[in-house]
Design a protein around this nucleic acid. Structure first.
Lengths: 193, 193
DNA sequence: ACGTGCACTTGACATAGGACAGGAAATGGA
DNA sequence: TCCATTTCCTGTCCTATGTCAAGTGCACGT
């Protein structure tokens, strides 16, 4: 396991010369995470930020009635952490859990701050990365308003077919904001068409 | 009208020495915005980022059924723009509209990029500002899941009483994700208590 | 290969919340 | 000042979704 895909991910967000990139990824360390185990638990402060080399991770929390609600999926080659808790140093309100066995590259808050300080390119990467995360969140908020659950389901499995393969439908349903029975009915309708 | 409150806002997010702060705010220009007029219309690219000196601004879009949905309120002393459109240079999906007469300090995308390049402190301010915006969005998403409309209504008017004074209830209702008739019923219940 | 437990589907039923419409009160323009 | 418009409240009705429960099929461990 080497850092190539992490370097590619960073280069895609902010192109830089290879030696700089090597410097940026220097503090990232490998981690193996077993299926169903936790990267972060609600109530604790998120202290690591993970780039997912293989596997799928999700974050979830509980709604008013105590139902589990999946707030995000993090497939392979994405960046996963509770940014709110990580940067604000406040207790997380979400759980982050591996859906499959995962391998990640992670960096601690302290190392990230040090690297922010030492490497201007890392700072700029950090800024662009947050803009991206903000965009994803905002797009999701808007699509929740502006698209039907059916369209959002189709968009999701189109853009990330691996999620459909590896994630229980109940997680997908709660991510879409509907009951698993409703998703079941949507799938039934979709097959008809 | 001087830039004191803008400088205070910036100093609060990232303290810096006064001459630096002066440099940071240099490119901000004043604008007066009439009640009900638009700062940004959906379909166009957001090219200005506003700090609100006086007045209240809101952003809104339309849901599936064509209903107006208020996506955010920007009271006095906050920072308002469609960050998604502004940074990604994509057409906005939202309208940004003055609820009252407003005075703002704004900076264009080009000037901001130039200042990002020239002033390291501005870059860092930009990064912290996005973290804040991300946090606000995420907190809002979570409170939509985890709190009743009644609690969210009370939280809103507690933290920003001026909104209740100056904003039509129907905007507040759509911001809370409920019909204006439902908000009316909530208010009725609240009075009883 | 047997049993236990998930994952998923489906039907019957209940209900929270929205749509709609009517009316009172407040606001604003001429 | 008066009329038009908008805001807000409230009653009735209705429907989209969720809840619950039952049943099938599959995967996994022993």
């Amino acid at each position: 396991m080497n850092k190539d895909s992490l370097i590619q991910f960073i280069q895609k967000i902010l192109p830089m010369n290879p030696s700089r990139a090597a410097q940026v990824v220097e503090k990232f360390k490998p981690m193996k995470i077993e299926k169903n185990s936790y990267v972060l638990k609600a109530g604790t402060v998120c202290n690591e930020s993970h780039f997912i080399e293989t596997g799928i991770i999700r974050s979830y929390t509980y709604d008013l009635d105590g139902n589990e609600v999946t707030t995000a999926f993090y497939p392979t080659n994405t960046y996963s952490s509770d940014l709110l808790s990580f940067f604000k140093r406040t207790p997380a309100k979400e759980y982050i859990q591996a859906i499959t066995d995962c391998e990640t590259w992670y960096i601690t808050y302290e190392d990230m701050q040090a690297s922010f300080h030492a490497i201007p390119e890392f700072r700029e990467f950090g800024r662009l990365n947050i803009v991206n995360q903000y965009s994803i969140l905002k797009e999701r908020m808007l699509s929740n308003l502006q698209e039907t659950a059916e369209k959002r389901y189709n968009d999701l499995i189109h853009s990330h077919p691996e999620i459909l393969q590896q994630v229980p439908l109940k997680y997908i349903a709660s991510y879409l904001g509907i009951a698993d029975t409703s998703l079941s009915r949507i799938r039934k309708e979709t097959v008809k068409k």
